[in-house]
């Protein structure tokens, strides 16, 4: 479907030389800007650049796998941090009032500006005998983007039980921790799932962008940059890396959807 649209647009653009009634088409359609789908697919089996071993497809695959691991680690770290923040903010109204603006503020700092900073700090960081690795910066930035929707969604979910349900737990003299475990956390699940989806997408974007600005090699983000530098010679190659990144996003989204199915199999459909 997408491939057909791509080719149709390209054929149309070629036919009218990228101009319709004097207006330029939004995207160039020459082979350098929009290679044929077949050329792109063909590129997967071409030899790698600059004497690297293997073929392009293999490089894209291993790059995507590398980035996937960073993004998933980032998502997990972001989930833990987001949940912890939400629980603390739910417990203490004062903390919520004090912290929530900063949680929102944290997302207005552009990742591009933040990345070199984190890398810079990381290089001087040493936890016990473990030296900070560059990939940790990538995971860190991935988590930095992922924690936000999770913290906001979880807070909303933790506050979702009705007054009556809270009174019920009170009437059983349940402690705050018991109320958290038996009421607030299960009630938060329907709010958490869409939050985790947003967080997962953010974690992937974060990992790819962070790879570029942190200068970490081996991932699909770096691959996109590498192939761009060779774009004049082989434009189709860039698109193989794009496809790799897109598939990466789909894999993460599918993972979250699988999680959703497991967690909501015993919930009423209307509540979701």
């Amino acid at each position: 479907m997408f491939a057909a649209l791509w080719e149709a647009y390209k054929a149309f653009g070629r036919a009218v030389d990228d101009h319709v009634f004097g207006w330029r088409l939004p995207a160039h359609t020459d082979d350098a800007s929009m290679p044929h789908i077949s050329t792109i697919l063909g590129s997967f089996s071409k030899a790698e650049v600059r004497g690297r071993p293997g073929i392009v497809g293999g490089a894209v695959l291993s790059g995507s796998w590398f980035t996937l691991r960073l993004a998933v680690t980032g998502l997990i770290v972001g989930f833990v941090v987001g949940m912890a923040l939400a629980i603390i903010m739910c417990r203490f109204t004062l903390v919520r009032r004090a912290w929530l603006p900063y949680v929102v503020l944290s997302q207005t700092v552009p990742l591009i500006a933040l990345a070199p900073l984190i890398v810079g700090w990381g290089n001087r960081l040493k936890i016990g005998s473990v030296h900070w690795q560059p990939w940790m910066s990538v995971t860190g930035m991935s988590a930095y983007l992922a924690f936000f929707p999770i913290a906001v969604g979880a807070l909303r979910g933790l506050q979702s039980p009705k007054e009556q349900s809270l009174e019920l737990m009170d009437s059983y003299a349940a402690s705050w921790t018991q109320t958290l475990l038996k009421l607030r956390l299960p009630a938060a699940v329907p709010y958490l799932l869409p939050a985790v989806k947003l967080g997962a997408a953010a974690a992937v974007v974060g990992a790819i962008v962070a790879e570029l600005s942190a200068g970490v090699s081996g991932g699909v983000g770096r691959l996109i940059l590498d192939y761009f530098q060779k774009a004049t010679g082989d434009p189709a190659r860039v698109f193989t890396a794009f496809i790799g990144a897109a598939v990466l996003g789909l894999v993460v989204a599918a993972g979250v959807n699988g999680l959703e199915l497991v967690l909501t199999r015993h919930r009423p459909k209307a509540a979701l």
């Binding site: 009705k162 009556q164 349900s165 019920l168 038996k182 299960p186 009630a187 009423p268 509540a271």
Partner: peptide, 10 residues
């Protein structure tokens, strides 16, 4: 209470 208030996940 007026609403049964059963926990839907249990």
């Amino acid at each position: 209470f007026q609403q049964a208030g059963l926990f839907e996940w249990r």
